[in-house]
Amino acid sequence: MDDETIVCRCEDITYQEVVDTVDEGYTTLDEIKRKLRCGMGPCQGRTCMRLIARIIKEKTGRHLDEILMPASRPPEKPVPLGIFASYEVGSKNARNCKRSEQFRSIFGGKDE
């Protein structure tokens, strides 16, 4: 990987930024997440966390297993609030929460 390689696509974080952060003394996934926001995008780190863990491993020599133990933050996949909301009121239409064009024009937001 070279310096400008993007390791976290969702939040646009480069290899060099992660290396600099580890050099600054942040050597856990939780800290790097909070510092750079990588792992907090729509994919919730599924794409980038292992890459970042590998950078930490390279720089600190610690084991991958030990590095890859951040607290789980369910839900595992982005799910619209409406699904959980209707879940409580017991509506059978709970899963009918597709985003309209209108929603996107007001709020922006990316579909997966």
Binding site: P42, P80, F103, F107, G109
Partner: peptide, 12 residues
């Protein structure tokens, strides 16, 4: 109400 279409990313 329009938030029903809004994706939850994480809870803690």
């Amino acid at each position: 109400p329009s938030f029903k279409n809004l994706n939850v990313l994480r809870q803690w």
